[in-house]
Amino acid sequence: MQRAIWVLWPAFIVGGITETVFFTLFDPEDMRLFGEAITLSRSAVYTLGFFVFWMLAAIPSVLTCFFQRSAADINHLCPLEPHERPLGCPKREDCDQCHQ
């Protein structure tokens, strides 16, 4: 849940700014999608555009979270049994504060 907020909230701010700047400069009625004129109303394009920008802005945050994972998070094969692993190891069986 907290990770979702980490990703979605900054993206919401950036998506809002991008939306404003983009649609100030470009009129949806002048835009073409694969060579075809867009038949949707401006309100529809603004709304859909906002979600596109929001989701695009979320990608970098998702990647940041993804690349932040430690080696222990990524490695699957460990020769030690879960209860034998050292204290603080995220894969230790009785260590559940390591997983957020």
């Binding site: 034998e84 050292p86 204290l87 009785d94 559940d96 504060q97």
Partner: peptide, 13 residues
Amino acid sequence: MNAPEAPRNAAPD
């Protein structure tokens, strides 16, 4: 490997 028993939800210290 014998790790000392630690309470659930506890940090190493």
